[in-house]
Write a protein that binds this DNA or RNA. Structure first.
Lengths: 187, 187
DNA sequence: GTCTATATGCCGATAGAC
DNA sequence: GTCTATCGGCATATAGAC
């Protein structure tokens, strides 16, 4: 049995995440989700008010785990700003590649009912701004932070959606791009 | 009358693009599209084999126009590599901000039936690689090009999806990030 | 907490007449 | 080239029994 049939709310959310990671969000139906849990669709409504609330909970979890990955990376990397920033950006990509569907979903959803606080991304990224300030200067730390987020998000999205088709070492390309970007602020 | 009722294939595609730009892809139905054209849904099948083919045609048009914008930017910008690259990247963002829904659609679609040649993005961006080579050296021109694409795509996507919520001048942030990235390769 | 039955609605696509 | 009629399917969600 691929999925347990003990159905509390966390189990429902975890199972839905697995289904989304396997097939994407679009084909996810409450009927299929219920089937994966060994129950019928209407039973889900005892645990979740509706589908949007379910997706919201999933997206909140995704962002939470992404920023847990940040914290772990910061804790183990060398203390200098350059190393800290490198570590965070690489942990970002590693997370996204490990959870392509749920990562994409969390960062592209615009429906207010399915989307965590609009501020959550930039709020949880605040600690990184201090590192950025040490590199680019306090004045430019917000633009510098946003550029860094843009670079890694963009790289990962193009990668996940199959837009890098000419071959080559994407790990090396990512590292080189990140280093170039950081270097550009160190003037 | 917001839409003409003269229905040839180009008109159908143009009207569909307008509807997508107004409301996004998800709510687009063939019934609504037909209504906007002053006809009934089944009539569409005389011009387009199915919905996927329609979306494919739209995405092809979007990419074509994006790269037309590139060409126009390159033609008017100063001839030095730094200015040329700046001009292209800024024209990229300008295009995306002007066509948020169709831009996002074209660059995130993975369904093979709705998606232009997987190579199209990187193929049509080839001319820019020459500029990048002049800045970063021939050896690194592909990673440098990919990083540049990642930076602008990521910035624009975060911007379009409302992930930059802390205020500030996004135009300035974009320019600063692009300049930092370019500077980082000029060593 | 799960079930059956069902409301309700929408959608893409085809057949065949005009 | 457009129409009407319709097939076939699927989805979210509710009501009410067990």
């Amino acid at each position: 049995m691929p999925y347990p049939s003990q159905t509390d709310r966390p189990t429902i959310i975890a199972t839905a995440r697995t289904l989304i990671e396997d097939n994407g969000v679009e084909p996810l139906t409450l009927t299929d989700l219920a089937a994966a849990l060994g129950i019928k669709a209407p039973s889900l409504y005892r645990h979740v008010p509706n589908k949007a609330a379910l997706l919201l909970a999933i997206n909140e979890l995704t962002l939470q785990e992404l920023f847990d990955a940040f914290a772990a990376a910061l804790a183990t990397a060398p203390a200098d700003p350059h190393s800290q920033l490198q570590a965070v950006l690489h942990s970002y990509r590693t997370f996204a590649l490990a959870h392509p569907q749920t990562y994409s979903l969390a960062l592209t959803t615009t429906d207010p009912n399915e989307r965590p606080d609009a501020h959550q991304l930039e709020q949880m990224v605040l600690p990184i701004q201090a590192i950025m300030a040490a590199i680019s200067g306090t004045e430019q730390s917000l633009p510098a932070l946003r550029g860094a987020l843009a670079l890694v998000h963009g790289f990962v999205m193009l990668e996940l959606k199959g837009q890098f088709q000419r071959g080559g070492d994407l790990n090396a390309a990512f590292a080189a791009a990140v280093n170039a970007y950081i270097r550009g602020w160190q003037v």
